[in-house]
Simulated scan of single mutants.
Amino acid sequence: MIRQTMSCGRRLARQARLFPVVLLLASPSAPALAAAKSVAVFDFQLIDSSLQGSMEGVDPAQTKRLEKMAPELRDDIGHLPGYQIVDTGPVEKKADAQYLSSCGNCALGLAKQVGADVAVVGTVQKVSNLILNINAYAFDVTSGKEIARGSADIRSNTDESWHRGLAYLWKNVLKKQFEQAK
C-alpha cells in the first residue's frame, strides 16, 4: 500500500512539472506569437499644397503633430495580435530623403532592410488650415500587394483633430484590414 502511494506521488510530481509546458503548447497565443508578422511603420510625410505653406513655410506645431502620427499607428498595430513592430531607425535617413508614398516600391526595399514583412507609409495632405487628409497604406514586402489602405478627412489643423483623425482611420478602416490580412 505504501509503495502504491509513493508511485502515485511520483507520477503526480512528474505531471505537475509537465503541466506548464502543456499549457504553453495549448495556449492560443503560442501559435500567434510564432506566426507574428513584423511591421515597419515609417514616419508620416506632409504634402502641403496650401496657400499658408507656400507663403509661410514650415509650421513648427504642424511638424510636431506629424512626428506623433507614426508612433501612434505603431502602437495601434503593435497591440493587434499577430503583428509586431520593427525599428525603422537604421533606414530612417533614407526614408526621410524621399516621398515614400510616391517613390515606386522604395518603402518595400527599406522595410526589407530592417527585416519587416509589412511596410506602412502615411501622409497628411494639407489643402488649407481647415481641410486636411490623413492617408495610410500597408504593403506585403515580399509580394508588393497592398494589404490595407485608408483615408480620413479632418476639418481643422489642431493636435486634437490630427489625433482623432488617425484614431478614426485605425479603428474604422485599417484595423479591420490588418485583421483580415493575417
Results as ranks from 00 to 15, higher is better:
Ala97Trp: 08
Leu18Thr: 06
Lys145Asp: 03
Phe42Trp: 01
Ser102Phe: 06
Lys64His: 09
Glu146Trp: 01
Met69Gln: 13
Gly82His: 14
Ala13Gln: 14
Arg17Pro: 03
Phe19Val: 13
Ala35Tyr: 06
Asn172Met: 02
Met55Tyr: 14
Ser29Phe: 15
Ala152Val: 08
Gln98Gly: 03
Gly165Trp: 04
Leu108Trp: 00
Ser101Gln: 04
Leu166Glu: 09
Leu100Ile: 11
Leu33Cys: 10
Lys112Pro: 04
Pro20Gln: 07
Met55Glu: 15
Gly144Trp: 00
Ser143Leu: 01
His79Ala: 11
Leu12Ala: 14
Val21Trp: 04
Leu23Asp: 09
Gly82Tyr: 14
Cys106Arg: 03
Glu72Asp: 10
Leu100His: 08
Ser143Tyr: 01
Arg3Met: 14
Thr142Tyr: 07
Leu24Lys: 10
Ala70Leu: 06
Lys37Pro: 07
Asp117Met: 06
Gly82Asn: 11
Ala107Met: 05
Gln84Phe: 03
His79Tyr: 06
Cys106Thr: 05
Ser151Phe: 10
Leu132Val: 12
Ser101Gly: 08
Ala16Ser: 12
Ser101Leu: 06
Val41Cys: 06
Asp159Gln: 07
Leu73Ala: 07
Gln177Trp: 00
Leu25Phe: 11
Val118Thr: 05
Ser161Tyr: 07
Asp48Glu: 04
Lys64Thr: 11
Gly104Tyr: 10
Arg164Gly: 09
Ser27His: 11
Gln84Ala: 13
Thr158Ser: 12
Met55Ser: 13
Ala34Ser: 10
Val41Asp: 07
Ala116Tyr: 00
Arg3Glu: 15
Met69Pro: 04
Glu92Phe: 13
Cys103Ser: 15
Asn172Arg: 02
Asp48Asn: 09
Leu108Val: 02
Gln125Tyr: 09
Lys126Asp: 07
Lys93Met: 15
Asn105Thr: 05
Leu166Ala: 05
Ser102Ala: 14
Ser101Asn: 11
Gln177Arg: 00
Ser151Ile: 12
Ser50Lys: 06
Ala136Ile: 02
Asn172Trp: 01
Val127Glu: 13
Val124Ser: 07
Gly144Ile: 06
Asn133Gly: 10
Val141Met: 03
Asp159Asn: 09
Asp76Gln: 08
Ala16His: 08
Pro71Arg: 06
Gln62His: 11
Thr158Gly: 07
Trp170His: 06
Thr63Arg: 09
Gly150Leu: 01
Ala181Trp: 00
Lys37Gln: 12
Val39Ile: 04
Ala116Asn: 02
Ser7Phe: 15
Glu56His: 11
Pro31Asp: 15
Ala138Ile: 02
Asn133Ala: 12
Leu80Thr: 07
Ser151Tyr: 07
Cys8Trp: 14
Ser143Asp: 03
Pro20Met: 05
Ser151Asp: 13
Gln45Tyr: 01
Gly165Met: 03
Pro90Glu: 13
Asn129Lys: 08
His79Ser: 09
Val86Met: 09
Lys171Cys: 04
Val21Ile: 09
Leu24Ser: 10
Leu166His: 04
Leu51Asp: 13
Arg155Ala: 05
Gly53Arg: 08
Val22Asn: 02
Ala61Glu: 09
Gly78Met: 01
Asp159Val: 10
Lys94Val: 14
Ala61His: 05
Gly57Leu: 12
Gly165Glu: 03
Ala32Pro: 07
Ala30Leu: 15
His163Met: 14
Gly89Gln: 15
Leu108Gly: 00
